[in-house]
């Protein structure tokens, strides 16, 4: 029994050094050398300053910006320091209330738009930090953004297309539009 205890403690020490320290540190070294941008958070740089991460969404609620997925992080949306989904069950009355509030905000911002709202614009993402919306959700907002900015719809549509990513080799994942990158590009247009 004593041998077993000694074996357990010494092997745990070695496993800790090997898999708990050497492994993550050497992966960090390799990652920093091979993929410096990705391993440090895929930041978008503007005039040498980071303005956000291409992978972490931000909250937009002005009519001139494309809005992202609703976010359930607390205490304010898109709080990257505390990722969270809503965890509301499908039949929880609180979910119906939240969805109604989200749809009415979209309707109020764009009263003339009679299209049905794409589901991803009315439902909170899993992480609360989803950087993407579906192409349908972007198309739904094109006219509102164009009007608010005084741009041609075609110009805005072209910007959306430029920031749309198709399925990987046409099969994997879903087509998405990166909201922060798109909005930054629109700000550049002015």
């Amino acid at each position: 029994m004593f041998t077993l205890i000694r074996n357990a403690i010494t092997s745990l020490i070695l496993f800790t050094v090997l898999t708990g320290i050497l492994y993550p540190l050497s992966v960090t070294g390799l990652a920093q050398a091979l993929f410096p941008r990705q391993s440090n958070g895929s930041f978008i740089m503007k005039n040498g300053n980071p303005v956000g991460s291409a992978l972490i969404g931000q909250q937009f609620d002005k009519p001139g910006y494309f809005w992202g997925r609703p976010s359930a992080t607390g205490p304010f949306p898109y709080n990257a320091a505390s990722s969270s989904g809503s965890n509301l069950g499908p039949n929880n009355p609180a979910l119906a209330l939240a969805v109604r509030a989200r749809t009415s905000a979209l309707r109020t911002a764009d009263p003339s738009n009679r299209q049905e709202i794409p589901v991803d614009l009315a439902t909170a993402s899993g992480s609360g930090l989803d950087p993407h919306i579906s192409p349908a959700a972007a198309a739904f907002q094109v006219r509102r953004v164009a009007t608010a900015r005084g741009l041609y719809e075609a110009t805005v549509r072209a910007a959306v297309a430029a920031h749309t990513r198709q399925r990987l080799v046409g099969v994997l994942g879903e087509p998405v539009v990166n909201v922060l990158e798109l909005n930054l590009a629109l700000d550049e247009l002015r």
Partner: peptide
């Protein structure tokens, strides 16, 4: 509630609460 949950080439559709767009 006037929400489009039909799947299409530009909309994942379905129950998207708690799911990521990608």
């Amino acid at each position: 509630l006037g929400i489009d949950q039909t799947a299409s080439e530009s909309n994942p559709g379905g129950n998207m609460e708690g799911k990521e767009a990608r």
